[in-house]
Write a protein that binds this DNA or RNA. Structure first.
Lengths: 207, 207, 207, 207
DNA sequence: GATGAATGAGTGTTCATTCAT
DNA sequence: AATGAATGAACACTCATTCAT
């Protein structure tokens, strides 16, 4: 898990039966659809339940709050994203630093761009729901993985690894997100991705 | 102005008397304070009016909506920020590209860090209020200024200026914001800022 | 039904349980009482709910608007009124025209006079709520019934039935209502009713 | 005047100067236009003042209430209508009863039909504003004039004049209004008017 | 006298949450 | 376990009226 969620946000019960699992999935799916379609401000518990095909009462058996529901949806999404990044980091253990950086950029870029509307909608819901702790936890987790990867680089001879790692991570994640928010796509996005790789490699060589 | 706001978000009337201007300022100030203290979801029109020392009715003479109020507050803030960046761009006309980039980083970093809680609170309110057009307009405006500045560089010999400018802008704004959101401060922030300058310079030299 | 109500005015859901039906009745009753006591301008959703012994929220489960509530109350009332008139028309199929007219006058007069304050209050609410379509629909429906009745008259030998029917209907409904609004009652109302019968009979004989 | 208005509804001051009179006219005109365009529920004091080209404050110098304004507008309208009817009554002194009735029908019909939207809008405003006393006063006044006219008829030999007069007045006013509300116009309205005359004449001959 | 900024009580409506069935 | 009717606090917004300038 991304982090142990605060007590208040924990789901009420973990589903034990197969049917309950399907219900839970339906609720998640409904939530995401509504979030994408109308945004958090239009999302009501009744509407989620309706679209998920369950009653409000049932929904409240799984989630004690509206907030807990949103939290869970985001937790799930970030969990998957974190796993993707960790997988990349594992795969590149021992490579050259430049290649690591390139792989990282690719992975994050693709993850963001995969379902852009879902990404956008969920990000907004995090902000609006004060769930920014979720994002911090995600950052910590990926930082760990990335630091480990970079430390294993075959060309690792840098004296100030801490600072350099932090720089790379902040630049990459910040840039990808900014590009995404600026709506870059197609050829422009592709070019920017290449330039970012060039920039990072130039930085590494300069060290 | 950042952009001509959509009709629906325009303030109802511009203040003509000195008293009205003070009223307007009080409303802005109250809004920002509440936004910082409790966030948008706790901000009600009544509370804003109360803290500003006016009646709700008065507030509604100036703003047709709650949304228009938030819009105006953010517009004001981004206006100032844009002006700061434009000033920097003007000052550096004809410099070396590397110095331009450094100046840009400094300016934006300082602006963000100046009143971090206000910055954070306002940014969140933009997201929650669907006012992201404001941010786009800000981006367009600064892009123009920055592009003009870079074009005037004394060492400007790059063939693909468009792509390079876009890259620099996206990296710088994305990175500064990400650093800000990660809560970097003090020595760490300072180091990151220096590293970002180094990275950009390395990129420029590589071209 | 009086007419299919415009989408916007339709009740939100039909009650399915016995309890819900009682709730609905209580709401109707409360609305009428308040309308009679204070008029539409003093009728607030809160007050209706209070007097009906339910919460506002419950009211809004059945009616999407205040307007829909008023609409429903009037629809119900006019439905009953229309049924009474249709019953009279059915009963008199094949009679002499003069007797038909007399029966019609009697029925309408009695309906109006039955609960004069309710009649008055509801009529006012129709006007104030722009629900005049309801009244048109009522007029169309009764016109149909009356025309059918008159066409079946055993002494029907008139050449211009259309015009005569229209005249009779307009005179009768107009007169009864005007008498009602002038506050006629007791002996005076009785006399007027008789005179109206005489007048209509004189008209029919003249044809 | 239609009747001495209740103290609370009296205009605050009678205009003494020519300018004030023009202002008053502008206010009346603005009120009627807004009433016709949007109905009473959309009519606000601010909007009236705006359209009349004066400030709210000024309006409140002439009318102590919104209600007083509406009252005055209706009073004015009914005053003119009453005068028209009284004039007809005066003109027909000593005629035959049948001709009197016909003239009365014509006059009232024309008055209603003249500016139908204004008629409708003002009538609605009377109902909504609880100003029905105005209409009663109008009824009393015209009843007096009509009774006097009929009493002067050259063929007046009826024993129960009171009852007959009341009947004629109620039938005529009720029918004309009902026809108006049913939206009759053109050939149909014309026919109905003729039939009403026939009916009233038949009634008179029967007596 | 005229203006229009300021007032604030009052309204319709929503929606997270509960709990009787 | 599941339902969905019921709750009611909370909110955005209006507008007749006042009064300082």
């Amino acid at each position: 898990m991304i982090s142990s969620p605060p007590q208040a946000l924990k789901p009420r019960k973990r589903p034990q039966q197969r049917r309950a699992l399907a219900t839970l999935d339906a609720i998640f799916e409904a939530t995401i659809q509504l979030l994408v379609k109308d945004g958090l401000s239009q999302l009501t518990t009744t509407r989620v339940a309706e679209r998920a095909g369950v009653s409000v009462g049932t929904m409240y058996q799984y989630f004690p709050h509206k907030q807990a529901l949103i939290y869970a949806v985001n937790e799930r999404y970030l969990e998957l994203l974190a796993e993707r990044i960790e997988a990349t980091c594992r795969d590149r253990q021992g490579s050259l630093t430049g290649d690591m950086v390139e792989a990282l950029i690719d992975t994050y870029w693709q993850a963001k761009t995969d379902k852009p509307d879902v990404t956008r909608a969920l990000y907004r819901s995090v902000v609006e729901m004060d769930n920014e702790a979720l994002i911090s936890a995600f950052a910590v987790r990926t930082d760990v993985a990335i630091t480990a990867m970079l430390a294993s680089a075959s060309d690792n001879d840098r004296s100030d690894a801490r600072s350099n790692t932090r720089t790379l991570v902040t630049v990459i994640f910040g840039t990808v997100r900014n590009s995404f928010e600026r709506g870059h796509s197609g050829e422009i996005a592709e070019d920017l991705r290449r330039q970012l790789v060039i920039m990072c490699r130039a930085y590494l060589e300069r060290l």
